[in-house]
Design a protein around this nucleic acid. Sequence first.
DNA 1: AAGAATTTCAACCGCCGAAGG
DNA 2: CCCTTCGGCGGTTGAAATTCT
Length: 298
Amino acid sequence: MGRAPCCDKANVKKGPWSPEEDAKLKEFIEKFGTGGNWIALPQKAGLKRCGKSCRLRWLNYLRPNIKHGEFSDEEDRIICTLYASIGSRWSIIAAQLPGRTDNDIKNYWNTKLKKKLIMGLNPSNLGKFSQPFSGSLQTQPQPLSTDLLQLYRDYNSLCFQAAKSASAAESFSGPQNFLHCNTSCSSSDGSCSQISYGKEQVIKQEDQMGCLHQGFNVEESQKFMLHYGQYVDGDHPHHHGDPISVFLDQRANGVLGSNSQYLEEVKQLISTGNGSNGNSFLFNDENKTDERGMYYYY
DNA sequence: AAGAATTTCAACCGCCGAAGG
DNA sequence: CCCTTCGGCGGTTGAAATTCT
């Protein structure tokens, strides 16, 4: 019954690949292909590696036409747009970026792009930019679409709906964070955005004004700062429970709409080339475009 | 210059659906 | 059906590199 075990874990090498191992694997696959069986491949190729490890090494590093190095602005926009639509479906996102691997994109998102996006959503940063920019993502801020504003509003709305009912709050991580957070926080530029938590909250005036200038009303701006502040404080790339990720994942997973709806959006995006329009990345959602604003990411 | 802190990213882990037996 | 393996995927880890103090 069944098949042979995947590999003998005790006799399998782990850790970084040596140039010799890389050469063996590359040579074998170029000569014989994978044979449709990764588990059997290492033995045939004379490698003391698990089949899964070989597959990963080939797909992420050795296979031809892999693109290494900086992501372009266009690639950034595609990743952000697709992430906003379908969440962390890295393999689907990678399929739209020739030469990029899902692992690469996942790392890039978790270490750089997400930060840029969230920095851009912080109203205290918005005031720093009086004019929209175009140009390199690394050196200049760029405008975000109003849809990201809408994403954040959806998120805040969910938080407050959920906060009204204990059972809802239990099933949604955002409100729990919101309700139970009791730490002080400061924005990344060192200015404190939030002075206290609990029922009495004080929001730094200029940050509120930043929100208001960007189309938030007073209540929204306060909600925004509360959520944003708790993420920025102690932010670390290994922490993936930040509000915007949780929210985007839940949205993509159907909390705010059916998954198929967003997959449809992706298909449309790809076919129409939307999301690569000038400096802002936009995706069509006729229900969520009642306002326009300009947001930035570093 | 040196130690601490932070960031990066290759690689591993574990789960899941599909399919073999 | 049920059990098992395989391939694929997303989440996570940790060593190395880089930046900060």
